[in-house]
Each structure stands twice: as structure tokens, then as C-alpha cells.
Design a binder for these strands. Structure first.
Lengths: 155, 155
DNA sequence: CTACTTGCAAATAATTTGCATGCGA
DNA sequence: TCGCATGCAAATTATTTGCAAGTAG
């Protein structure tokens, strides 16, 4: 189970298992496959069960979780970072430019052969990559279509 | 020429051609193919020739340039954005995790066929994508190798 | 002229840090 | 007990905004 794995990571690196960390972990575990969370969102969820926590504790622990590979840090160009539980499975995201909805996709376009070729050609050691698809989700497109229609009728 | 194109874009949208805008444009044109610039870096370069400018003017005009397609906005997960002249040619970047060096690469892994497949499967209209390769550049790897060596000898 | 722009200063937003106290192992 | 953690407050960094004065077209 995900929680046991995380606890083990804490122990291994000498990090203490505090109730704050457990609550933060719980928030991520309860959030599998849904929208990656911003620090603020994590904070609001944790505060429900642990009212005295400060947002600085969230930030500090997101770093720790990140270091331990428990979560991933994502950047959707919003001026803030988002975090998701590390499923251990390589994946990327669809991001709606209108409503911010994100969806994981298993698809990855980057092939081992290309990686090697670029490493050699550019003399650059590739450690990781990001690939995000931006566009409009079904719902936002439908809303937009409705809006256009009503404007056409009234205009 | 790049400058004429930009000026034309300004006129077309009713934006005025102020000396500040010309200086900012000049900085980008003089920076082709080198490191994408942060707002602060643009500011420091412009200030050399136009000392009274404020960094808020830089930000406001980066938005305008962006809207006109004169520059691209990039995000390398540094907690700030970077900007580069829009060459009109689709490309991605190598980013060194150590020194921050970036290099453009023409290679793009994302194929039209895959795009269509995902759009259909996910019912998502894809407008753009980001693909960045993170790792270590030649220089940083060499430095690291030297450091490891000297530590081994002294240790 | 006059609407778009700028510079200044102050406001926001996200994230980080110093420090005294608290608490898990 | 002892060192890692936390909460509080204040600092930092990136970016945005209000407003009066300036200027391109």
C-alpha cells in the first residue's frame, strides 16, 4: 500500500512521522487520478482535519515528499506548482486552457532511440523530460459552442 | 526583418511604438539563439540604454509582445518565466539542471497521427504542447567529473 | 487632442526563512 | 534526551495594479 511505502521512506531517511505529514499524505492518497493539487489546495484540505497547521509546513513537507519520490511536482504555467502522488508509472498530462482541468495520459512520444541520439549529438545527459498537451476539454468546448450560438441568435 | 515584422504587428493592433518597446525588441533581436531571458534579465539589458524604465513596463510589454506573437513564453520550472524571440520555427529545449543553460533543438517527438488519436480518444482539442528535456550539459558533467576525481584522490 | 503608455509606489501571490518552542524516536 | 519539526511572523521573489503625468499618432 502507498502509505506504507511512504512511511518506510521517511524512516529510511530519518524523517519523523508527524501527524502533519500523515495528514498531507492522506490528502494525496485520497486524491489519486484527480486534479494535481497546488500547495494552497493541499493546505485547505489538511486544515480541515488539522486546523493548526501552517502553510509553511505544507511547503516544507512537499519538498520532503518530493525528495523521497512520494509525489511529483508539475508545472502547468500558472505561476504556481502542482503536486500529484507518484504512481510509479510514467505518464503525461492534458491541460485545459480554460478551466484548468488536467487528465493523465499514458502516452509518451519520446522514444529511447531518439533519447540516445540527442544525448550523443548534443553531448547532453538527459535525466528527465516533460511533455504536456494544452487545449480545450469537452465541457469547455460545449460551453463555448452554446455561447457562440446564443450570441449569433441575439446579435 | 524581424524588427519590421514586430513594428507592423504593433501598428496593426493599435499599439504605440514607444522607445521603451523598441529597446525591449532590440534586446530580444540581439539575443537570437542564446539563453531565453527572464523579465529581470530583459530589464537589466534595457536599463543600460534606457535608464529610466521600470520593470513593470517590461512586464507589461512582455505581455503585449506575447499577444502579438513576437516572443514565446517558456517555463523551465524555476519559479519564473523566460522569454525568447519567436523564430516561427517549431522547436523545443534542452535545459541543464545544474547551470540553467538552454539549447534549442529542432527535434519534436509529437506526431500528427498521435495528436489526432489523442484528440479523438480523449475528446480534447489540442492547441499546443510543451516538451522539454532536462539533464546535464557537457560542461557541468566535466566539472562534476573533476570534482569526483579530486575528492577521490584527497579523500 | 486623447487614448494608449509610462514610472512610481504599493499590492498580490507563491514560496522561503529565522527563531523559539514542541515533540517523535 | 536530542535533533528534527512545527508555528508564527517576517522576508523574498515574481508579477500585477492604481494612478497621475507623459507622449505617440
Amino acid at each position: 500500500m502507498k502509505e506504507d511505502y511512504a512511511i518506510e521512506q521517511f524512516r529510511k531517511k530519518g524523517y519523523k512521522i508527524t501527524p502533519q505529514r500523515q495528514e498531507i499524505l492522506r490528502v494525496f492518497i485520497g486524491n489519486i487520478d484527480s486534479h494535481p493539487l497546488s500547495a494552497e489546495e493541499v493546505y485547505r484540505k489538511v486544515v480541515e482535519r488539522y486546523p493548526n497547521i501552517g502553510i509553511d509546513t505544507i511547503y516544507r513537507n512537499l519538498s520532503v515528499f518530493l525528495e523521497l519520490g512520494i509525489i511529483n511536482k508539475l508545472n502547468f504555467r500558472e505561476g504556481k506548482s502542482r503536486y500529484e502522488l507518484n504512481s510509479g508509472k510514467h505518464h503525461h498530462h492534458l491541460v485545459c486552457l480554460k478551466c484548468g482541468l488536467t487528465e493523465q495520459i499514458d502516452y509518451c512520444p519520446f522514444k529511447e532511440l531518439d533519447l540516445e541520439k540527442i544525448q550523443e549529438e548534443k553531448n547532453f545527459e538527459i535525466k528527465k523530460h516533460s511533455f504536456e498537451l494544452f487545449g480545450y476539454c469537452k465541457l469547455c468546448r460545449e460551453k463555448q459552442a452554446e455561447k457562440s450560438l446564443s450570441e449569433a441568435l441575439s446579435g
